[in-house]
Design a binder for these strands. Structure first.
Lengths: 184, 184, 184, 184
DNA sequence: TGTTAAGCGAGACGGTACGTCCTGTCTTTCG
DNA sequence: CGAAAGACAGGACGTACCGTCTCGCTTAACA
């Protein structure tokens, strides 16, 4: 019964969205523009995504191949360093992340989707590392792991947004040192 | 030369912007709407501000009475606690701050203004506290105060944006404890 | 009492209006533009003229040196030919006349000024010629001179506006022939 | 392909334009106003007409039911009288015609459309009458029919614009008499 | 000879319409 | 029945002028 959803259209839309974003920035991205670039009717986009932010979020998940590797070196400093360096290395996605966050700040409905589908997944990965470290006794009692997570992603997003300080490998190591010092 | 700028119009515009923002949120704020609410021609707004974000930024500075108190209790834990609790208490400005940050993420030109006129002023205040503590030997050698500042404001903004954890007095104290533990 | 009107400003305004009109056409002429080009405040224009059309009308009277010569060759065909050829030769004023007429069609207040200060003066000149011819018995009884005037200026304006037929010396002679044939 | 043009919208636009014109005059007519009165987006007007003048021209053609009757009484005086009286009787369209002519004087692009779609159609009708009369030998040799047409429509438009003389049945007969006298 | 009232340039003011852009919905035809 | 095409109502955009209004400064004629 009924014609099935066109995979071709789906891919064209996500592709057009991501490349339009890279070229002209999130602010210049429009549903109209995505549809035109994808050779697709606007309705076809609206049928499957409620807003351009949701398209981009799907595009991010689809293209930027988001396996979040959870390293397991056997010690907190090792795990943390590897995780942070890997995370900070994805700085190339800045335009995408910045745009999605902007949208989330303006639209509470999308904010929920962004949190649940993207941000919380990242938190969970880091949480795993911290839990393992706690099991090994590497984290002093009385330290709230959630606060630690907020510190990590807080610094990450704050620097991503302000662009006032580097977000590179060295920064990853510096933050690792600070955290290890804190919890021990 | 020519007719001088109308102080009345200036205040009406800032007032209309801030109250419109409080009532319907930043996304629903329009230049058109501000002009109408202020009883002012659109041109009069565009003559003095390049975008609605700049109006709101001026409104924030004007209305939200921006003295950033820098406490001086004589010890880092005391100063930090007082500063963070005071800062976290301004959570009522969330809609304003969220809107401005969204705009900054979408518009690099405004981003600069926002950073220079608002965010960096806050950093400077915290910096004063940390420098004083360093002078008293309360901060261990090898700790970059700028990273500490990123941690503080990183956590603050991350929670402000995600709204996933409280941003209250208790949170201020908890973060204080973590930082004091880190630097000692 | 008070400072007397500035003759310099008056001339600058009329000059700016006329040259702006020649260069960019009546539609593109604005009070703002005239004031800027004349190096004059807008108020100075509004103080002395109610609309741009009135400025242009004054400019036409001032610059285009409006002596309407009434020839007197002793015969109707001679007078008529000379008058029409002279009138048709002023075709260079087309942009000015076209613009003023457009304004008159849109603004009944200006229409009155245009009629009284410009159009009726032309009619009076032609009327003189016809009255003289009537005195010499060159016009058959029962012919309304006002209708003849309407024919002359009707054809003139119709061609000026439609621009579908020449408005040159030959046209002047052709119309003369037709009129002489009619009245005799 | 795509959704077909809405006949409803088209009619609403033309209707709103014509009634707005009748009520407040051509000068007070705005695209904005037409759109609002027609319950239509501005874009829908701009999609199909380049300017308000073109809307009004279409409205004139659509509503004022423009069959130009070409009478055939068998003689020039009869045809001419009937044609002129019928034409002069449409004086109620003065606001429409006056507005369109004003626009044509200000905008050369529209001028062409107005000439080709409206004015020349009228000339053709009169031309038919004159050609038939010439075939019957009612027009003396050496008389240019185009000049006669210019005389007729010149007088018509000149009176329509200046509004200084009646444009009624009597005027139609008077002009007929003059023309018949001229050509014979 | 100093006062004073109008004219002057400059340019900001509250408005209104412009023509463009995008939104999210709708109505076609095609495959 | 999904999809492309594209028209639709709506509404904000940023710009251009409108005609009015304040400024500070001339510039004569009056006192």
């Amino acid at each position: 019964m009924g014609r099935p959803r066109s995979e071709t259209a789906r891919r064209a839309i996500l592709g057009a969205a991501m490349s339009g974003l890279q070229e002209h920035g999130y602010a210049a991205l429009t549903m109209q523009g995505i549809a035109a670039a994808a050779g697709v009717g606007k309705q076809t986009i609206y049928r499957w995504w409620p807003s351009k932010a949701d398209v981009v979020l799907d595009g991010l998940v689809e293209f930027a191949d988001e396996r979040i590797a959870v390293p397991d070196t056997g010690s907190l400093p090792g795990d943390l360093a590897e995780f942070l360096v890997a995370t900070f290395r994805q700085r190339g996605q800045r335009p995408v992340l910045i745009g999605l966050m902007a949208e989330a700040l303006l639209d509470p409905v999308f904010a929920r989707a962004f949190r649940d589908r993207f941000l919380f997944a990242r938190r969970a990965a880091l949480r795993q590392i911290l839990d393992r470290a706690a099991g090994r006794g590497e984290i002093a009692a009385g330290i709230d792991p959630d606060l630690l997570i907020d510190v990590v992603y807080g610094v990450l997003w704050y620097r991503l947004m302000l662009d006032h300080a580097p977000l590179d490998e060295a920064a990853g190591r510096q933050l690792t040192d600070l955290l290890v010092r804190t919890v021990s």
